[in-house]
Design a protein around this nucleic acid. Structure first.
Lengths: 203, 203
DNA sequence: TCTCCTTAATGAACACTGTTCAATTATTAT
DNA sequence: ATAATAATTGAACAGTGTTCATTAAGGAGA
């Protein structure tokens, strides 16, 4: 059996990514293997390696898909007020992590062997993510420089990200089920209020 | 060769953990394997399994050691002023993550197969970590309830933790080399100022 | 229709992994 | 010296990522 041409290269890639996504979601990150993906799509391991350079490559492509999905959800939200917008972003982020815990883990915990860099596509997407927060902060604090803005946007996002990660790792030990959501509100409100009062009104 | 008694059970455990720590630090988390640890301490794989129930167990014990080391560093710092204390804690945390990136990764990214819980010892240590921040916040905001305090202590820690993780994952994309340190200051100062002005002075 | 060439597709092979457990052997007790 | 005990081993099993010689299907030219 050769040159079956049941699927084009691109179709095969899509099939494989879909199968991999399903395995990760249902059996966890560590259950992902080339043989499982191959059998899931009805091809052999060798065929996989004609589409992806290796498992690492497949993981990054999967992560790109995941981040695309997250970015789409973030774009879909349309609060005008920048403060409300930031809250909405944070909530979407937290809920996305909760809904897709394994894919989220792969996105932030996968590292290439031998310190290979993450692909440019993903780097661009993360930059896009930052730009959303940048925009919100920019309208709230028009006086800040681009550098200042970048630094603070990353600070906000780190906070949200930290909450998401600790929550997923069961390292928060909170009684309330919506503890993470409450923390999110405390974080964003606290930072915005604190940064607003910078210089003025210092107790 | 049996009953060599070169080392007691406890000594063997210690040897193995030390070797594992070294492997993780020098070759990365994914390079850790039972055979490598075994050969490093001059025993066979089988002997490892008489001291640890499996690799997962060894990882958790390694993580307990790492967290002990971090807690010791946190205790060593002795700023009286609660605000300064929080800053110091954050800096120690960030620097610890930078100095021991692989052990830190293992600590926060390791998950047991089949959703087994993390051991009680580690849970207690994390609670201790929270208690430090609790104490600082408690003296700054004596009016808060224990619940309120817990929620905010975790919020602060999530922020610091998020900065540490994104920095290690090269997902911050900042020009300045000390960007993470600046973010840390912005985070803590912002949150404290914002939480201080809560209710009063609301713009 | 019958070759010939190209190439999609395979799966055995290699070196690794965690884990188990019968076999071996050094120490202790009798 | 002998028997009992338990520390230690390493082969075996099922899995992993990756490579690559082999196979066979499709198209082109006669």
């Amino acid at each position: 059996m050769a040159r079956r041409n049941d699927h084009t290269r691109e179709e095969l890639r899509e099939l494989a990514l879909e199968a991999a996504e399903h395995i990760v979601q249902t059996q966890g990150v560590e259950a992902l293997s080339t043989r499982k993906v191959a059998t899931a799509i009805g091809y052999s391991v060798g065929s996989l390696y004609s589409v992806f350079s290796n498992l690492d490559d497949l993981c990054w492509q999967l992560n790109t898909r995941t981040l695309t999905e997250l970015l789409e959800e973030l774009e879909r939200q349309q609060a005008e007020e920048p403060k409300a917008c930031l809250h909405a972003y944070g909530l979407i982020y937290l809920q996305f992590a909760q809904r897709h815990p394994e894919r989220w883990r792969l996105l932030f915990e996968h590292r290439s062997p031998e310190g290979k860099q993450m692909p440019d596509a993903l780097e661009t997407q993360i930059a896009t993510l930052f730009s959303y927060i940048d925009r919100c902060l920019g309208t709230l604090f028009p006086a800040w420089s681009a550098n200042e803005l970048a630094l603070r946007a990353r600070t906000v996002w780190s906070g949200v990200h930290g909450i998401a990660q600790l929550q997923l790792g069961d390292k928060l030990f909170l009684q309330e089920p919506d503890g993470a959501t409450q923390m999110l509100a405390l974080l964003i409100d606290g930072l915005l209020k604190g940064w607003q009062q910078e210089g003025e009104c210092h107790a």
